[in-house]
């Protein structure tokens, strides 16, 4: 059997997900509906022979692009998924959001996404959360572990992380804390698209040029996510485009650009 680099990446991710499932009695996978977490969902189906034996958590900020929700609900039906939707209703009711002019972009992300996630974790008592972050996305994620502990306040102690070697992960943890599991950590943006192409994974059409000469490269909330100039209409055209590009993936995500260390602060506080 001939193995290529995608086989190697896939093998590592499957191994990590099976380790997590064996070790965490109550866990869930975050699904942002984007390409990464959808590829990760596909990997879970590979790891568990067509099944997804844990719930998928979608943190709905209410500002998602509407077609994302339609696409989400279609896959839930077709793939027979357990979906848990989390939403920080208090903040939304009070209207303390960036689109309302009552929060900065970073505060809005923190309240709607980070706190929304914390509410779900506390409500369901999850001790393991699978998240599809990758090392090549940004410098703080580059420092992540595959199994990354968060304290009771969800905080990440980036300067004192557990050692992680020889496929042995941190699976022992104090009550009240939880572990983030990152099965895609070693993938690149290009790898994800190559894998989507090989496996024919259905991705949301927002990633493709709709005829306006623009497409989304990274998906978030409508007010803070902007399309990039691109004429890529298919997965293989995206792969070709990425092989040549030298601009960063999250250039269209406004919250990252607010200040030099804004995103880093968000992640320390428990953002995905």
């Amino acid at each position: 059997m001939h193995h290529d680099h995608l086989d190697a990446l896939e093998s590592e991710s499957i191994f990590i997900m099976r380790e997590a499932f064996a070790k965490f009695g109550n866990m869930a996978m975050l699904w942002s509906i984007g390409k990464d977490s959808t590829a990760m969902l596909w990997l879970a189906r590979k790891a568990f022979f067509g099944h997804v034996p844990f719930p998928l958590v979608h943190i709905d900020t209410s500002y998602k692009i509407p077609s994302m929700i339609e696409y989400r609900d279609r896959l839930v039906r077709e793939w027979n998924l357990q979906l848990v939707v989390g939403q920080n209703k208090a903040v939304l009711e009070e209207g303390r959001t960036y689109p309302n002019g009552r929060a900065t972009r970073v505060e809005c992300c923190g309240w709607l996404k980070k706190d929304g996630l914390q509410q779900v974790i506390e409500h369901y008592g999850y001790t393991g959360i699978i998240v599809g972050v990758r090392r090549d996305e940004d410098p703080t994620r580059a420092k992540e572990r595959y199994f990354s502990p968060r304290n009771a306040n969800m905080e990440w102690n980036a300067s004192d992380q557990p050692p992680e070697f020889w496929n042995q992960f941190k699976t022992d943890f104090a009550p009240g804390t939880h572990i983030r599991i990152h099965p895609l950590l070693h993938w690149t943006e290009l790898n994800v698209w190559e894998y989507i192409e090989r496996e024919k994974i259905p991705v949301i059409p927002l990633y493709f040029d709709d005829g306006t000469g623009h497409r989304y490269r990274s998906l978030g909330c409508a007010p803070c996510t902007f399309p990039i100039q691109s004429t890529a209409r298919t997965v293989s055209e995206i792969v070709t485009e990425l092989k040549a590009t030298r601009t960063s993936e999250r250039a269209g995500r406004a919250q990252d650009q607010e200040s030099e260390d804004a995103f880093e602060k968000l992640r320390r506080d428990g953002y995905m």
Partner: peptide, 20 residues
């Protein structure tokens, strides 16, 4: 290489980052 604020302040690499 240094993405984290703490690193820029202390001027030491505190963790293992991966780049290509």
């Amino acid at each position: 290489m240094d993405g984290l604020q703490a690193e820029r302040d202390q001027n030491i690499t505190i963790d293992t980052a991966q780049i290509w």
